[in-house]
Amino acid sequence: MGKQKKARKYATMKRMLSLRDQRLKEKDRLKPIKKEKKDPSALKEREVPQHPSCLFFQYNTQLGPPYHILVDTNFINFSIKAKLDLVQSMMDCLYAKCIPCITDCVTAEIEKLGQKYRVALRIAKDPRFERLPCTHKETYADDCLVQRVTQHKCYIVTTVDRDLKRRIRKIPGVPIMYISNHRYNIQRMPDDYGAPWF
């Protein structure tokens, strides 16, 4: 068996001089990078996310009756489909007084949905609901709710949206209220508050 001849490849890349090559002139040559020596006696800084003071072993001390409940757009729509009164059903679920809170973003989102969702808009403008003004410009309600919940841990979030639930589960100490079997249920609520745990 003879040796196989290696044919030269058709489109071989031209060899380029590296910027550190000795044949280049001084001005074209890349400057050598000097590594700074680390001082072993210097303090090492690490960024560790600061947990809020209201959480004690993942138990949120800011939650307590009367509950402030952030309402999402789709939650109102699904409550209408399930023929549930929002405030009464929340009280039945939590066995305590509930104050539903609605942000400007959620109200704007319901207004954008048009004439078909006029009943949801009328519910959103109910005087029993507490209005929460938004300072940011965009009107995407999910971002607004997540931002508000990360800043203030005193809210329960109501939603049926899977993506929003997934985002809120990453934030410690925030319970989620949802609809199943034509009634309201709650996740991640502290046991001491006596709410049904499903």
Results as ranks from 00 to 15, higher is better:
26 E>F: 08
152 H>V: 00
134 C>W: 03
21 D>G: 02
169 R>I: 11
2 G>Y: 14
44 K>Y: 03
144 C>P: 00
85 D>F: 13
182 H>C: 08
87 V>I: 09
166 R>D: 13
144 C>F: 04
163 D>Q: 13
30 L>N: 10
106 V>C: 06
150 T>V: 05
176 I>C: 02
178 Y>N: 02
35 K>A: 10
184 Y>S: 01
59 Y>F: 12
71 V>N: 03
134 C>A: 03
158 T>G: 09
24 L>M: 08
190 P>S: 08
105 C>R: 00
169 R>F: 11
12 T>A: 07
114 G>N: 04
159 T>E: 02
84 L>K: 07
110 I>N: 00
186 I>E: 01
88 Q>L: 08
26 E>A: 05
114 G>Y: 13
169 R>V: 07
89 S>F: 06
189 M>F: 15
136 H>E: 11
119 V>C: 05
148 R>W: 12
193 Y>Q: 12
78 F>E: 14
10 Y>G: 02
134 C>L: 05
41 S>N: 11
81 K>T: 03
179 I>R: 06
113 L>N: 01
113 L>Y: 05
168 I>L: 15
124 A>V: 06
24 L>W: 03
116 K>G: 14
121 L>M: 04
167 R>S: 14
89 S>G: 10
98 C>D: 06
142 D>Q: 10
87 V>G: 00
163 D>W: 01
119 V>P: 01
80 I>S: 04
161 D>V: 04
183 R>H: 13
35 K>Q: 09
13 M>E: 09
132 L>S: 05
51 H>W: 11
118 R>E: 11
15 R>M: 04
156 I>A: 05
18 S>N: 13
105 C>H: 02
126 D>R: 12
44 K>I: 09
99 I>T: 13
182 H>V: 06
22 Q>T: 07
100 P>H: 07
73 T>C: 14
61 T>V: 15
64 G>Q: 12
99 I>Y: 10
153 K>H: 15
127 P>F: 00
117 Y>H: 09
193 Y>T: 07
87 V>R: 15
181 N>G: 10
117 Y>P: 00
106 V>P: 02
48 V>H: 03
91 M>T: 10
135 T>S: 11
109 E>Y: 07
102 I>W: 02
16 M>D: 04
159 T>M: 04
179 I>K: 00
23 R>Q: 12
154 C>F: 13
71 V>G: 03
171 I>Y: 09
115 Q>F: 09
78 F>C: 01
80 I>N: 03
89 S>D: 07
162 R>S: 14
192 D>K: 11
29 R>E: 05
89 S>N: 04
39 D>Y: 13
124 A>S: 14
94 L>A: 09
61 T>C: 07
131 R>I: 13
79 S>D: 03
191 D>H: 08
4 Q>A: 10
128 R>S: 13
78 F>W: 01
158 T>I: 02
45 E>R: 10
126 D>S: 15
44 K>E: 12
135 T>N: 06
79 S>C: 14
130 E>C: 03
15 R>P: 01
78 F>Q: 13
66 P>G: 04
41 S>R: 09
141 A>W: 08
30 L>A: 14
54 C>W: 15
68 H>I: 00
173 G>Y: 13
136 H>C: 14
146 V>K: 11
108 A>G: 05
148 R>L: 15
140 Y>T: 01
60 N>A: 06
168 I>W: 01
101 C>D: 01
105 C>A: 15
192 D>M: 06
172 P>C: 06
181 N>M: 07
80 I>Q: 07
76 I>K: 03
7 A>S: 12
95 Y>M: 08
